[in-house]
Amino acid sequence: MTDIGVKKELVAGRPDLWLRMENNPIPSCPGCHEPTAMRAILEALEELDAVGDAVMVVGVGCSFAFQSMVDLDYLVCAHGRPPDGASAVKRVLKGDHVVFTIQGDGDCIAIGAGALINAAARAEKITIFMLNNANYGTTGGQLAPTTPLGHVTSTTPGGRTPAHGYPVRVPELLATFQGVAYTARGAMNSPANYQKTKGYIKKAFAAQRVSLGLSFVEMLCACPPNWHMTPLDSLKWLEQTVIPQFPLGEFKDVQGASGKTQEATR
């Protein structure tokens, strides 16, 4: 560990679940929000005292790296398939397990759309976290179904136009399914949004614990290298361009979920 790492830890603390890796404490790019989102999930698990019962199901994307950083039981699935794997884990273990996926936007709603939609159709009692950085980060920033209009990617060098369709709003989409109990969208760009998002995450886990149905939280994340911006400019861009096209908030919270959620949160 470098001095800097230690200092950061002293100032902000960090969840026990982050493993210390010898060479590479955080394998993501500088300014990446995916570790921030992962951290919010880990804090929520710790606060809910759900660490020992948690199983994390990882997809393929930059969040793939978290398998070596997080001290939880985990399973890595093929690209787009975490909802399939998580459904089976939840049904086979039969206990009070908290089973969640961590997926990128491409993993979740491009290649994995079929798996996601059908997990929702089956009302699986699992939680899906979609880290939306508006592109395929790992492979160099190509167009994803969630790329905002006008955004330049390596496969839409002139910016996304309606000829490539419109950005998909996944929590809004999933809210139409009867078997979905909770959906929300948060962001990692400010301490206030971080705290709100953590609240969504806790509610999503709580909905799972009381077997209400599928729960889903999207988290908007900056991806500075592929956006060709500095980390700071990425924050501004998130605020000015991404959030207006992807409104933050809760889109579904089934009747009684909040009440029950509160009980379960304790």
């Binding site: 093929a78 399939d84 794997g85 998580a86 089976a88 086979v92 798996a115």
Partner: peptide, 11 residues
């Protein structure tokens, strides 16, 4: 069947 094999993976 993509679903089946990945469910098998999970189980």
């Amino acid at each position: 069947e993509t679903g089946s094999i990945n469910m098998l993976h999970g189980a």
